[in-house]
Design a protein around this nucleic acid. Structure first.
Lengths: 365, 365
DNA sequence: CACCTGGGTTGAAACGTGTCAACGAAAACG
DNA sequence: CGTTTTCGTTGACACGTTTCAACCCAGGTG
């Protein structure tokens, strides 16, 4: 695709002005010749240094340095059948929640010398599919995946291709299918609901993302449970507004729907499926001249960085984002290291309530 | 590294329960046999479909579908010397500015069938170096890079290895070195300064990131120019507070330094090098009981999503983030397509002032 | 001294693909 | 009808690495 110079004419590349011209083709064999050993030995120096006598090892390392050899990972993963990079398939790079998770994944991956490639599904099924295909073509060692919906068929296909994965933030994948690490969304909805009920709210709206996402469903269910638990009828007390995506724009556009309804059903508090939605909603409310929390209490979910930075601070349900990513990658590592006697595992974190300024007691009347 | 099963024993993999067992090894040759053609023809179907008769093409495509063949990109890039993925080397995945840019890059890359792998420097030189090495080992086709500082030696090395790149948001790379696309930071600082001066501010603080970053230096310079232009002494009017990183935490921690100084030098407005810094600063000010913009005007830089979502809205200098990414990738594409008669190019966008609620006229007295 | 042992090293054989000269057949031409 | 051109297809080879049986040799054992 690139032909660095007119094919047959091995003309000197004008770019390599500084430093040694760095012979265009330095492979393992060239290094071997230069060090007076066989290619196999060089390979050993690279991959199992302990098996080679320290004298020759030093000689090889010197040659590597002198020739400025850089390993060709295509060759290596072609021969070994697997590449040494793992995919991180994320729902939305734009969402701070995911970027935080990715930090955890990266930190854990480097300890194993694995490279992380970050891929973005943008909450779209076909993009997820494209990315999964990409991972298969690259023969990725493994992947950490946040599935876009309940249909795991593409992921099963990926595993059949020989690429292991662990599901993140999706607790409902059976343990016969794969590992998963997630946060208890039922519990999250529950503590959110209890918090609002404790403040005297009797009519709340759940501003939801698509119900095709399991997290959304469970947070909703938890919220309803809280009301049932308090002896109130969830059917009457919690209304749902569903949006197709979980971003701020959607939150802002939802204002009308949230405020709609007769004075009787008008909510005194809103629980958003997401901090992003909450942020947009608060902006929309501000536009309408409504004050948070005086006119309406607002809760988010995730506790992303900016939840603490806006005014009023966003009351929200915190998820251990960094640890989530770390745990997922650790699980993946253990599966890669011992594929034969690996049994899928499910890790469940517990969310925590973080109270800030965006929720207040319901002033009746 | 992975040994799918005890070496010699080709035992049936218990995982492939559903669907066809999908013979573990389907390569281009297997497809060829199945379609009754030569491997070369299959390769042509994959890469230059127009050169193969439609009858045989259909036959091959059927075989591909039936065998569930998935191309092995290791083999392909080993043979061709280049992989078909490009790197996007970003300063900080956490910063919404970069995620927006990445969307532009991705959208443009898919039009050329290139896969984008996102790599994170975390504003750290050694991580940038690791990532550059990774790109070299993978023989990446190219890269879009936001350099962490002025030292471009690693990037020059990368190009010597045969991987082209274009610099993003770093206008000072010479056109003898590589393409670049950036936003005019001098102009940005200038319009920011004019805005503040127009509001009557005479004493402002520039809350800066590390001055090793070119953008920071230039925005500062633009700000000073605005004052000089207005007949005021920049040396007296603009004070600088420098922070080592460009994130919200740093902004919050800078409150003391910003407010420090006798009543005479106490600023009535702050220009932040970054929206992230501005956000943190505003939070810190809130903690101190100071109101924005009543007690202090605050400006950001970038116009990330949330600048419009917080209260008060953040007055800021908008950069065309998405177009930035798109332009960079387009430049890279053109270099990859015609490496021989390519001449490096420099694209400079113009920033725009976005006035929101965080700046107000200076109430003297 | 003959024999074994085992750590170091070698050489050749894959891995799956792209490329390219060569070739056959059919079509266009004189 | 013979000759050239065009279009499709073929095989074999090369890319850079890992792997593995074979081998060498020094040191220990009987």
């Amino acid at each position: 695709m690139r032909g660095p110079s007119p094919p047959k004419t091995a003309r000197e590349n004008p770019l390599s002005s500084s430093a040694r011209p760095s012979h265009p083709k330095v492979g393992i064999t060239e290094v071997a010749r230069h060090a007076g050993v066989s290619p196999g030995t060089v390979s050993n120096v690279l991959n199992r240094p302990e098996r080679v006598a320290s004298a020759t090892r030093r000689r090889v390392e010197a040659a590597i340095a002198e020739l400025d050899y850089v390993r060709n990972s295509s060759g290596s993963s072609l021969r070994s059948g697997r590449s040494s990079s793992v995919g991180l398939l994320v729902l939305d790079v734009t969402n701070p929640f995911f970027t935080e998770v990715s930090r955890g994944v990266e930190d854990e991956a480097v300890t194993q010398g694995l490279a992380v490639v970050l891929l973005n599904s943008a909450e779209a099924r076909d993009r997820q599919r494209r990315n999964i295909r990409l991972l298969a073509e690259q023969r990725a060692a493994g992947a950490v995946v946040m599935p876009v919906d309940d249909d795991l068929s593409d992921l099963l296909w990926l595993r059949r291709q020989g690429t292991a994965w662990v599901a993140l933030d999706r607790g409902d994948v059976g343990e016969d299918v794969g590992c998963s690490v997630s946060v208890d969304n039922l519990a999250g909805g529950l503590i959110a609901g209890r918090h609002l009920i404790g403040l005297g709210h009797e009519q709340v709206t759940f501003l939801a993302g698509p119900f095709s996402i399991e997290q959304v469903r469970q947070r909703h269910e938890g919220l309803r449970t809280a009301f049932a638990e308090a002896g109130m009828d969830p059917g009457g007390a919690v209304r749902v507004v569903e949006r197709p995506l979980l971003n701020p724009e959607q939150g802002e556009q939802a204002v009308d729907a949230v405020l709609a309804g007769g004075p009787r059903q008008r909510p005194s508090a809103v629980l958003c499926a997401n901090d992003q939605l909450a942020l947009g909603l608060m902006k929309g409310l501000g536009r309408r001249g409504l004050r948070v929390p005086d006119d309406l209490s607002v809760m988010g979910y995730d506790d992303v960085d900016f939840a603490d930075l806006i005014h009023p601070g966003l009351t929200t349900v915190a998820q251990p984002k960094y640890r989530l990513g770390r745990a997922a990658m650790r699980l993946l590592n253990s599966e890669l290291d011992h594929p034969e006697h690996h049994v899928h595992e499910r890790i469940l974190f517990t969310p925590e309530l973080v109270v800030r300024g965006s929720t207040a007691v319901h002033r009746t009347g």
